[in-house]
Design a protein around this nucleic acid. Structure first.
Length: 163
DNA sequence: GCCAACGTTGGC
DNA sequence: GCCAACGTTGGC
C-alpha cells in the first residue's frame, strides 16, 4: 500500500504514560504497531472513528512522566474500527453499555515511524514560538487524542530532529 | 501527594 | 434539563 502523499496527511498527538506503554515499547512491538485501545472519552472516540486516517502522522507524547515530553513520531496504519476491549467483561476497559452491533468505542492502529533525535519536553514546547495555540498547551487540556496543525507539526518536528 | 480542570452520572 | 457529586487526568 503506497504511503499517503504528504499533502493529504493530517496530524495528531496521542498521550501515553510511559510506565504503562512508552514509545520504546511501540518500537519493540511486532511490526512496531499497536491497537490504540482503551480510550473512553467521547471526543477522542470521535476523532479516532471519524478523522484519523491511514497515513496521518502522530506525535507520541509521554504524560505523567519526568519530564513529560514528545518522544517520537508514529503513523496511523488503520482507520478507526470498533474497540473489542469494550465488549470483554474481563478487560479493565469493559463497558457494559457497549454492544457488539452498536459499538460505543473505537480505536485505530498506529505504527512507530521514528524516535525524535531529541525529545521535546512540555516545558520547552511552552517556550517555542508558534505553538501558543497548540491544544496540548491550553490550560486544562486533558484530551488524550488531539489535533496538531501542520504549522505546529513542522515547528516541533524540526526541533526534535535537529539533534 | 495535591489539586485544578474536566467529563460523566444520576437525582430531582 | 439542571446541576451537585463524583471520578479521572495529569502537571506540578
Amino acid at each position: 500500500m503506497p504511503t499517503k502523499p504528504a499533502q493529504g496527511r493530517r496530524h495528531w498527538l496521542v498521550k501515553s504514560e510511559p510506565d504503562v506503554f512508552s514509545f520504546d515499547d511501540l518500537l519493540k512491538r511486532p511490526d512496531k504497531t499497536t491497537h490504540w485501545d482503551g480510550v473512553r472519552n467521547y471526543q477522542a472516540r470521535n476523532t479516532m472513528r471519524d478523522d484519523m486516517k491511514k497515513g496521518d502522522l502522530v506525535f507520541f507524547y509521554h504524560s505523567s512522566a519526568d519530564p513529560t515530553e514528545i518522544a517520537g513520531v508514529a503513523e496511523v496504519v488503520r482507520d478507526g474500527y470498533p474497540d473489542p476491549t469494550a465488549l470483554d467483561p474481563k478487560d479493565p476497559h469493559f463497558d457494559p453499555k457497549s454492544k457488539a452491533d452498536a459499538p460505543s468505542w473505537y480505536m485505530v492502529d498506529i505504527k512507530a515511524v521514528e524516535k525524535l533525535k531529541r525529545p521535546i519536553s512540555l516545558a520547552e514546547l511552552r517556550t517555542m514560538k508558534g505553538l501558543e495555540k497548540m491544544t496540548l498547551l491550553q490550560k486544562g487540556s486533558r484530551l488524550s487524542i488531539q489535533p496538531v496543525t501542520e504549522a505546529e507539526w513542522k515547528i516541533v518536528y524540526a526541533a526534535g530532529m535537529k539533534g
